[in-house]
Amino acid sequence: MCTVAISNSPVFSPSPRVSSSIFCKSSPESCSSSPSFKFRLQKPPPPASGLFRGLNDDVTSTCSSVSVSPTQLKRKRPTRLNIPVASLTFSADRSTTESTVEDRWKEVEVEEDEYSVYCKRGKREYMEDRFNAIVEFNGTSKQAFFGVFDGHGGSKAAEFVTENLKKNIQNEVESRGEKEIVEAVKQGYLNTDSEFLKQEKRGGACCVTAIITSGSLVVSNAGDCRAVVSISGAAEALTSDHRPSRPDEKQRIESLGGYVDSNRGISRVLGTLAVSRGIGDRSLKQWISAEPETKMFKIIPEFEFLIMASDGLWEKVSNQEAVDLARPFCASSDKSEVLSACKKLVELSASRGSVDDTSVVIVQLGRFCL
């Protein structure tokens, strides 16, 4: 049975004012066992609720119908800060092979009023990128959580991060409060890394996340996924790629007894991994840190839109090129135009020789400016 599952563990609470259009493009063969799998899914609005009132259900929907039955749990303490989080994943019968499940990520499209997402598999056998995206309206405040996760050595780490990072950040924010959100995000990343290592699974994942709450933007990264904002048309990177060639990263690795080697012009940790931070990577964990770098900004009217993407984009497209290409599309009131911008960016990277998986999320920041 080929289905689309929207995972609400622990929380899935999008706004009743927001509906998603999700398109999954894959070969007909990959869905041959499904009685009804179509390329378009219209998500109906689930009931509104506070983001830290955990929803315990997983919602599995065929393209012919969708139902959401959230269970509201009691809380021991009042919510201090709401971070809306949800994830898009795909599930299948146990008899379905991993390759079939992975193929459903071959090309994914999501379009909303506040954001659009486009993911496309490169020349790899399986798609290793994943993402989170959710928006909630809570009275007059607008809140959101976005994440792009680029797996390497398989998709297991990226899948694990997609399912658990949001929850771990939520738990830390609840216990620490809004004033300590930077430390809460850091501990959320570290907890997710520790949990994944206990799974004894191979591979790792680079991450970039953005939390929008109370008119502020909190951006974090571990690895080479990147976030770039358009400020009145000028591109500004909000994250710095964690590569072994970065002087401070090289010094950190060497201080821990490791080394950085260059192979065909690419610096690698112990001659192996081309990133110096990320979640997972058990065999190199002594040198690969899961600690993110986090920056916090007040969203001002000059902040037009945010581009979050895996390195499949940034290896071939500069920050300013990405903003210049996307800006005319983002100026349109038609949300399908923003999705077109995501696609154009992926196409541009591919036309320049990228063979990597590429995921692009564009967030219309003007919608969150208080």
Rank of each mutant, 00 (worst) to 15 (best):
S245I: 07
P328K: 08
C207Q: 07
N138W: 08
Q286L: 12
L73F: 08
L313E: 03
D324M: 06
F297R: 05
V355L: 13
F23T: 13
F329L: 07
K166M: 06
K335F: 04
P10K: 04
E249H: 07
Y118V: 06
T97W: 07
E111I: 11
V185G: 01
W105R: 08
F52W: 04
D224P: 03
E347S: 11
D281T: 01
G54K: 08
G271Y: 06
S34E: 11
R130V: 04
G353T: 05
G139I: 00
E174L: 08
L197Q: 14
I83H: 05
A237D: 10
K335C: 09
M1H: 12
A274M: 01
E249V: 00
T272P: 00
A234N: 10
G54F: 10
L88G: 05
E128V: 12
H242C: 08
I299W: 04
V317Q: 05
C207L: 15
V361M: 10
V110G: 05
Y189N: 08
E111D: 10
V11T: 14
S61H: 10
D57A: 13
A144S: 14
Q286S: 13
V361R: 01
C342Y: 05
S27C: 09
R121Y: 02
R40M: 06
P10S: 05
L55K: 11
A144H: 07
K106A: 12
F297V: 11
F146S: 01
G271M: 06
Y189M: 11
E347T: 08
F23G: 00
I22S: 01
A331K: 12
K201S: 13
Q199C: 13
L41F: 15
K250P: 00
Q286N: 14
L365M: 05
A234K: 11
S220N: 01
S36R: 09
F12N: 03
G177A: 07
K38T: 12
P10W: 04
L370S: 13
S232W: 00
G139T: 03
E236A: 09
R94Y: 07
S194T: 13
I169W: 02
C24N: 03
L325C: 09
R367K: 15
P45K: 05
N82G: 14
F303L: 11
E107C: 08
E249A: 06
V317P: 00
G271E: 09
E136H: 13
S332R: 01
S175Y: 04
V219Y: 05
N319V: 00
L51F: 04
V361K: 01
I307T: 06
C225S: 15
R104V: 09
C2N: 11
E136W: 07
R75P: 00
V260K: 06
